[in-house]
Design a protein around this nucleic acid. Structure first.
Lengths: 165, 165
DNA sequence: TACATATTATCAGCATACGTACAATATATT
DNA sequence: AATATATTGTACGTATGCTGATAATATGTA
């Protein structure tokens, strides 16, 4: 009787692992999805030399000229410690300017240069095509469904990661 | 008349960008999905100090002991130039061994240490919970649907990115 | 006004990701 | 055997992504 109690009581981590098919895990599928989305984006927008992350930054700065880095990061879900480097690269390419705020000396205000606006305008159609390409394997109905399901997951996890505020 | 022809013919890139809601682009949603999946994984498996990528490697090496790095990379869709560093870290932690092949001196054969097997076994339940957490916002039916749609996209793009062969 | 607290940006460290190039080694072909 | 080609692993450069720490600056409150 005592033996049984001991056996039942322990139940530690199983001695040997089970064989898990990585491919079947949602996490892995999502990682693959991301690899594919980035790959298609880069393929379609190759001639502009702008990454998906940089594109998102350009788009947001265009929508809200003069916003600060932190607000930008929050808006497009970058980590605040990443945003600096992204802006560095855009600034170096002359697509973005970063000026000290006259009212708050901590803040760097972001704006597109005319070159930045030009590049953004030029690449928008290619970005659209890339987005279509990602969902292309799905029917119209399936695409709507996929987007809805995705949004549902995102909505339930808004606070997770890259939301520094 | 000529004016019209000229206008029609050119159609260059638009002068000024349109305002695009980044949040509405599939690429951005997928990026968010990935951030969330990783975040949930790390949260659930915190005590094991193993990343999603490292976990995939452990799982695959357990399934196919003695496989080489390149095969591993292909199996779990790592970039071949990334796999080395991942194995380095697992090796340094004593979870994996990397031995020269007796038949082919180019190859490094991978195997789990007993510690590696132990860690893998210990974390499998927590990984399961993390995977459930990712899809938790969806109903059972929706989860099945989401997985099916995702797989359809992946199947159509198997060759894209991180498939070095 | 003086101090505690909050905010903005930056930096260091670690871990993917991918392109490109390259050395070592196998294998196929001539 | 000698050469051409393919394969395995590594290294370097660039770009995220996140944690934790810190400096500079604001702001709220005693």
């Amino acid at each position: 009787m005592k033996n049984v109690a001991v056996l039942v009581k322990k139940l530690p981590t199983p001695k040997s692992p089970k064989k898990v098919a990585i491919t079947e895990l949602p996490g892995h599928s999502i990682r693959r999805l991301q690899q594919i989305a980035v790959s298609l984006f880069m393929e379609h927008t190759k001639k502009h030399g702008v990454t998906p992350v940089q594109y998102a930054a350009l788009e947001e700065i265009f929508k809200s000229p003069g916003l600060d880095q932190r607000s930008l990061a929050t808006a497009i879900r970058f980590d605040t410690s990443t945003i600096g480097g992204v802006i560095d690269r855009l600034e170096k390419r002359g697509l973005v300017t970063r000026n000290a705020s006259p009212t708050d000396r901590r803040v760097r205000l972001l704006e597109l240069t005319s070159e930045g606006e030009h590049v953004l305008a030029a690449m928008q159609p290619t970005v659209q095509r890339a987005q279509h390409a990602i969902l292309a394997p799905l029917s119209e109905t399936e695409q709507v469904l996929f987007i809805a399901l995705t949004k549902k997951i995102l909505a339930a996890n808004e606070s997770l990661a890259a939301v520094t505020d």
